[in-house]
């Protein structure tokens, strides 16, 4: 397994864990919140709301803008 494969596998494992956490969060009796609940909780303050929206805007800048 090359270092390229290790790096890519790491990202895939993280993605799978994210999906798995969301599935666990959607099951009835669990202390783990869903992604949506977490976003709503973070965005309850102006700092959290604007901070997340700026992070989103940065994604667009990073991948497309000069």
């Amino acid at each position: 397994m090359t270092s390229h494969d290790v790096t890519v596998t790491g990202f895939l494992v993280l993605l799978a864990t994210l999906v798995g956490t969301e599935i666990v969060g959607r099951s009835r009796r669990t202390p783990v919140p869903t992604f949506s609940q977490m976003m709503t909780r973070i965005m309850r303050t102006r700092t959290g709301r604007v901070g997340l929206l700026v992070a989103w805007a940065w994604l667009g800048l990073h991948f497309f803008a000069k």
């Binding site: 709301r49 604007v50 997340l52 929206l53 700026v54 989103w56 805007a57 940065w58 667009g60 800048l61 497309f64 803008a65 000069k66």
Partner: peptide, 16 residues
């Protein structure tokens, strides 16, 4: 491309 992304990004941040 930069103008398009900056335009919509800034608008959404202002709304937020």
């Amino acid at each position: 491309a930069t103008a398009g992304v900056v335009g919509i990004g800034a608008s959404v941040v202002v709304v937020g």
